[in-house]
Structure formats: structure tokens, C-alpha cells
């Protein structure tokens, strides 16, 4: 049972196997259903969102390829906002506690979800992780999704904002190659821009065009975790998101 609100959502229950039926002819019916296949995930996602809203917490999902700088960005963000915003992180990886350990070393709570072979987080995994993460007194909850530009895009986690990172070494045509992921994002971060002088194949203009062509309509921030105007713009984006959540919860 969910500790937070007493709802009956919990780790998914095991199902009883179906007993084989005799092969006699019965009555045949065709039933029109028309429901979203992931409607159970969507229901749990809506439930997560209610939790976040009740606590006035801004929940942000970070998605990208492996190695594009999600954890490094979080480390730099936590350090920059120390004493200003209270942050916690849910880390998703196939294996290891490495990323959660890195976040805890920055002095904020982190829960690691190890998905085994699952290539994405879903709303139920986030809901389960919330059992170990008190939301009271938090301003921002980051969910760092499994590094993957395909699968996480299909699962609503119940967060307020979805972010997709595109790092300079990956190439400026990533949005064209993975349109579903980039189209669904509210904010795109072009990371590791300090490498631009060394990677002349990457054009920020082409990356922006590629984002526009896949239907991305959010803001685009170019940044490096080492600081500078892009990093400040990212912090500003977070601060205004937190202010909006506080106003909504008041």
C-alpha cells in the first residue's frame, strides 16, 4: 500500500496463470474497446503527479543517450543551488548504484532504481521509489531516466517537465534519428558546448533545425556544466519552475 496517501498502489502483484480450456466450440463475440494500451501506466503517472502537487514539488524527468552528461549536470546543479533549493534525485539504471552514490556525495537524498533488463522507467517504478523518498520539504525532484533515446519516451512518469539532453559529441542530427524522444520534451539542453571548438561537425544551428523539424516547440539551452550564461539560464528555468509549483500549491 502506498505510504503517502494510503492508496492501494504498490509493487505490481503476481498474476495467477491461466488454466487451459477445452477445445470445444463456444460463442464468438467481437468487443470494441478503444483504450490507450498504457492506460494503467498513465493512471499511476497521474497518481504520482498528485503526490508531487500536494507537496508543491517540481518533478523533472531527464532523458538522453548514455553519457550525454545527465548525472554531471545534476551534480553541478545541486552544488550551484546549495542552500537555495532543496533537491532529491531518483536514479534509473540497468545496474549499479554508481549514480545515486555520486548524487549522495553532493549532500542530497538519492534513490537508485535498478531496472535489470528494462530499458526505461515507468510510473510504477517511480511510485515505488517514492516510498523511500519523503517529499516533505523538497523543492525539486529530478528523475534521471535510463540512458536511452527510444524507450523512455513512451512512458509518462507523472513529472511536470520532461527534458532531453543532446551532447555535442553525439552529433547534431540526433533529433532527426530519434524524433519521438525529442518531440515530447518540454526543454532541450545542448550539453558539453565547451567541446564545440574541437568537434567542428556539430552545428548548433543544424541541431536547432533538427529539433524544429521533429515538432519540438520548447526552449533550447546551450550549456556546459562548468558554468557560464547557458548554465545560468538553466538555473533560471528551474527557479521559475519551482516558483510556479509553489504558487500552484499555495
Amino acid at each position: 500500500m502506498c505510504r503517502d496517501c494510503g492508496c492501494s498502489l504498490g509493487p505490481a502483484a503476481a498474476r495467477a496463470p491461466f488454466a487451459a480450456q477445452p477445445a470445444t466450440k463456444g460463442h464468438i463475440e467481437s468487443i470494441e474497446v478503444i483504450t490507450a494500451i498504457l492506460d494503467e501506466n498513465d493512471r499511476v503517472a497521474a497518481h504520482n503527479r498528485t503526490h508531487f502537487d500536494r507537496h508543491g514539488v517540481l518533478a523533472v524527468n531527464l532523458m538522453s543517450s548514455p553519457g550525454s552528461g545527465k548525472t554531471s549536470l545534476l551534480e553541478a546543479t545541486i552544488r550551484a543551488l546549495q542552500g537555495e533549493l532543496r533537491i532529491a534525485v531518483i536514479e534509473g539504471d540497468l545496474a549499479t548504484e554508481n549514480d545515486a552514490a555520486r548524487i549522495r556525495a553532493c549532500g542530497v537524498p538519492a534513490v537508485q532504481i535498478t531496472t535489470g533488463n528494462a530499458c526505461h522507467l515507468d510510473a510504477q517504478m517511480v511510485h515505488d521509489a517514492l516510498q523511500d523518498l519523503p517529499l516533505d520539504g523538497l523543492d525539486v525532484l529530478f528523475v534521471e531516466n535510463v540512458g536511452n533515446l527510444v524507450c523512455p519516451a513512451s512512458f509518462d512518469l507523472g513529472v511536470h517537465r520532461n527534458l532531453t539532453l543532446l551532447s555535442v559529441p553525439e552529433g547534431d542530427d540526433k533529433p532527426a534519428k530519434y524524433p519521438v524522444m525529442f518531440r515530447g520534451a518540454d526543454l532541450a539542453l545542448i550539453t558539453k558546448v565547451d567541446l564545440l571548438p574541437h568537434i567542428e561537425e556539430f552545428s548548433v544551428e543544424r541541431a536547432r533545425d533538427s529539433l524544429r523539424q521533429v515538432g519540438f516547440r520548447g526552449d533550447i539551452i546551450e550549456l556546459t556544466r562548468r558554468g557560464g550564461p547557458g548554465f545560468e539560464a538553466w538555473l533560471g528555468w528551474l527557479r521559475s519552475g519551482v516558483a510556479a509549483r509553489r504558487a500552484a500549491a499555495a
Binding site: H27, E29, S30, T35, S154
Partner: peptide
């Protein structure tokens, strides 16, 4: 879309 549209079933008996 990612929708379940239709399910064709067999029930035990003729109605």
C-alpha cells in the same frame, strides 16, 4: 496512437 481497438472472444456457451 497506441490503442487497444478490439478484442474477439469466445465464451463458454451459445447465448
Amino acid at each position: 496512437e497506441m490503442l487497444l481497438q478490439r478484442v474477439e472472444i469466445e465464451t463458454a456457451d451459445e447465448p
